[in-house]
Amino acid sequence: MELLAFGKTGWGDELFYATLMTIAVSITAMLIGFLFALIFTPLKLSKYKFLNIFGNFYTTLIRGVPELLVIYLLFFGGSGAVMYVASIFGYFEYIEINAFLIGSLAIGIISGAYSTEVFRGAIKSIDKGQFEAAKVLGLSKFTRFYKIIFPQMLRFAIPNLSNVWQITLKDTSLISVTGLVEIMRQSRIASAFTRDPLFFYSIAGLIFLILTFLSMKLINKFEAKYMNKF
């Protein structure tokens, strides 16, 4: 237990901050993932073949390549790519993207591919008649989407989004290559220092279990509340 003490001798405070980091990265990544889903879900559902190909390319690529490779590629190629784009606009200085953003972006891109699939599935499972009915009622396209389609989509999507959240949370364990000190990297450092990997990796596992447990509880509560609206 001394190993988990807070302060200079123990690893308690370091692990606590690492846990906060994991949570911060997971939430940021999940939000970035939503942004990607917002772009790619319409592409996948579009009538145009060309746009479909674009959307499918993203989800197939990201879901078919190990997360570790995606993170490595973004870590080593990310700054270069951004600088290349900037150079097109006549900006040649070094652009730094900090470790937190690189990490969140990498996990976010992965998370986004799963979210896209969830949203696509949710929209598809909405009864076709609803679209027709809304049209017949003469609702505008905007109202149709925000008042009819979106709430229903969310209802179908939430259970599956909680899976995406779990995947995202666990994937953060892979971003230690970016130098970001999250739970996994901190456990690695601590177990190297104390030569007690069994203890620290078990603690890491336990923290993840608690995080998934608590977040599931939260999502269930939210779901119950939200579902009551219908």
């Binding site: 666990k170 990796y201 993840f208 998934t212």
Partner: peptide, 23 residues
């Protein structure tokens, strides 16, 4: 099922490889 689905695979490998070698 809960434990193995609720923790990252990386943690599981490290516990089995580096952790168990301590006992």
């Amino acid at each position: 099922s809960y434990i193995f689905r609720g923790t990252p695979l990386l943690v599981q490998i490290f516990i089995i490889y580096f952790g168990l070698a301590q006992l």
